[in-house]
Nucleic acid binder design. Sequence first.
DNA 1: GTTCGAAAAGTGGTCTGACCACTCATGTCT
DNA 2: AGACATGAGTGGTCAGACCACTTTTCGAAC
Lengths: 214, 214
Amino acid sequence: MQNTKPTSKMFLDIVGELRLMIKAEGIEVGDKLPSERVLAERLQVGRSTVREALRSLELLGLIETRRGEGTFLADFKKHQLVEVLSPFIMQQTGSAKDARDTRIIHEKAAIQSICSDSRKQKLPVWKSLLMKLAEEGSVLREDIVREMIVATDNRLSLKIWFLLKQYSRVPYGKMTEVKENQIVSTLLEQLIEGHVFEALNAYERWIEEIEGEE
Amino acid sequence: MQNTKPTSKMFLDIVGELRLMIKAEGIEVGDKLPSERVLAERLQVGRSTVREALRSLELLGLIETRRGEGTFLADFKKHQLVEVLSPFIMQQTGSAKDARDTRIIHEKAAIQSICSDSRKQKLPVWKSLLMKLAEEGSVLREDIVREMIVATDNRLSLKIWFLLKQYSRVPYGKMTEVKENQIVSTLLEQLIEGHVFEALNAYERWIEEIEGEE
DNA sequence: GTTCGAAAAGTGGTCTGACCACTCATGTCT
DNA sequence: AGACATGAGTGGTCAGACCACTTTTCGAAC
């Protein structure tokens, strides 16, 4: 019986078994896993126990289940891990200031990353944003920042930033002030030139301009 | 009936409900959650459904379950999450790099924050670390970096860093090379002096020394 | 023979009820 | 007062039963 393992968590064993099975049978991303009923019989456990393990893996984004079809090995790129974890982390951490500071950390890191990128592959993005800013006189703040993070090609950072953005309700709307337009133009120009210090300087002035009293 | 929600995943809703409940009832880390049977009745779902959600959260390390006692809100120190996820993450090329890059983002941000702190309240920490390094000839790498993040007084950043640290299998153990000791000494000295550029420079050399070929 | 549609099989989603093993508080007996 | 037995409460697991959905099968109509 499985009752001889009082200490270990059954469903954790199942998770391990599944991992071994995936490897042993050469199941690739997108392939179908054995059905819950088959797994239960093969592993000699109840179906509900199998389900607890599968639901855990699903929450992690390791598998994908489609009713009526089956369970499939998922592309881990799409993990909603950060989404699930963040509410708890934010709740236990609690500080709005931390959320803001951390968001800024990622935004600054993006600027530094962009300026250090010798290949300058993302140049067209900044130039088009700069042009749009000059023509229309206004751009969504969020678009600019998001493009910066996207440009770093770090999905994890992007996810974290996206979530933090929601926790620190920043006026990410349209820009109205002429002064702000000038600052952002400077920021973009420095990004294009790859001048880290100047770009960061412009960014900090921008933050100051937006959030003002802090 | 709950059957009117064919699209959404029931157990994901439960996860959300639990989060709300935790917040509403002010459940702190270490506190006991309602029993599975109570939760099932209160949320008007079957016990097995509740369990699927709870097992998921347990795998994430957000809750801790003790047979015969109950379910408790955990401070995810027990991260079996990592053991489960690491094999999958390492397979997906992009994920591991993102985790490492993001971790370094937070570490660098900590250095910048410390150097910019005009009050220099954390000076004693660096001095004691520096002394310990000189006396014992070796310190745990992790201790140094952790102290840096702690010094920023940003608990959210600390939590994120802590999670990321586990995924990037970095030799966070003891330092052995004399050269590394010198680099870290330099880093600490520059932290004390508040020289951002020099500190970051030392940090980058450190990373290079540790991780070598990259 | 081909095509179309209904039935069947397979699968995940959920609920119920039943045990088991364990912990803890309660109360009883010595 | 202390030691021990008991019962309530809780998580762990299982079996069986539906439901909703998708895919396959297969036979009837053309």
